[in-house]
């Protein structure tokens, strides 16, 4: 068991589901024959955190807080080099893309220093790492439908290479501004394109055991597939978060012990990534 790599908690927020109380449901802008649904963010964090966070990084932070609580991870346990963090997203951080329009509108001084520092695809994970004191490995995968699953693959690599004891894995889409324009132009047949924020805690079984946490599942293997044309289009599209949304949903189904959970993300040009998991026991449950 000590060599096993396990998932101990998952948090899943999807646009169009479980709207926060006392707030109207997210935009759901109708654009042609399909629609984009965005997540309705909770109120911005107060105080010192307010200036640091972008809407996306605040959303990630809220998800990580929920994740840590479910995984039984105290602030002290999370902080330090034993914990890494990785994100995967097809479009990355929308602020990166919006800088160009800001410049067009406001001229060469249209970008301020803080705004530019926040305009990196790794900003959400870095901002959260600073607040949580994470000092392990970090990466941001960006640019395809495989990004979330490749983030999980990075985390799997780091754990089996013994770089750290746990990795907080995030997959999301941030469909605002220029990104929304591109989604509207390029995916007219996709049915519904929805924002998602998925986080999961991947760690060594030994680390989970030391806290007395029963894992949800063991991550048995991850496999990279070559490109294969003709894969069917999903009617419900989460872009770079697709694979991890499926994985989180599957784990929430209370799969019987002995069964196998398979999550797949595919991209016509980049192939696919498959994760195979075994539920740890019937006791595991995900609040999704």
């Amino acid at each position: 068991m000590s060599e096993d790599i396990v998932i101990t908690a998952v948090d899943l927020v999807l646009a169009g589901q479980d709207p926060p109380p006392e707030r109207p449901q997210a935009t759901g802008a109708a654009l042609g024959p399909f629609r984009i649904e965005t997540i309705c963010d909770p109120a911005e964090p107060a105080g010192a955190q307010r200036s640091r966070h972008t809407p996306l990084s605040a959303r990630l932070r809220a998800s990580l807080d929920a994740l840590a609580s479910r995984a039984g991870l105290s602030a002290e346990a999370l902080a330090g080099p034993a914990t890494g963090i990785v994100s995967g997203s097809c479009y990355g951080t929308s602020l990166v893309h919006d800088g160009h329009r800001q410049l067009r509108a406001a001229g060469p001084r249209g970008l301020d220093a803080v705004g530019f520092a926040q305009a990196t695809h790794n900003y959400p994970v870095s901002a959260c790492a600073i607040e949580l004191g994470l000092k392990g490995p970090c990466a941001a995968v960006a640019g395809s439908r495989l990004a979330g699953m490749q983030a999980l693959l990075c985390a799997f690599d780091w754990l089996r290479e013994r770089r750290c004891d746990r990795v907080l894995v995030a997959a999301y889409e941030d469909i605002r501004g220029a990104v929304a324009d591109h989604v509207a132009v390029s995916r007219p047949d996709a049915g519904v394109v929805r924002e998602a924020m998925v986080t999961l805690c991947l760690e060594t079984a030994a680390a989970a055991q030391a806290r007395g946490i029963v894992p949800l599942a063991r991550l048995r293997s991850m496999t990279v597939l070559p490109p294969a044309a003709g894969q069917s289009e999903a009617v419900e599209e989460f872009l770079g978060a697709s694979g991890l949304v499926d994985l989180a949903r599957a784990l929430s189904l209370r799969v019987p012990a002995g069964a196998e959970v398979v999550a797949i993300a595919h991209d016509d040009e980049r192939g696919g990534v498959i994760a195979k998991l075994s539920p740890w026991s019937a006791q595991g449950e995900i609040a999704a």
Binding site: Y91, A139, A142, G143, L146, V224, P227, R270, G271
Partner: peptide, 24 residues
């Protein structure tokens, strides 16, 4: 897309192994 270059390289050179793009 931020990872467009990796897909273009893979297709042009016939690289059909793992393809990924990082922005850190």
């Amino acid at each position: 897309l931020p990872g467009a270059a990796s897909a273009i390289l893979a297709r042009s050179f016939g690289l059909n192994g793992p393809v990924a793009s990082f922005s850190c």
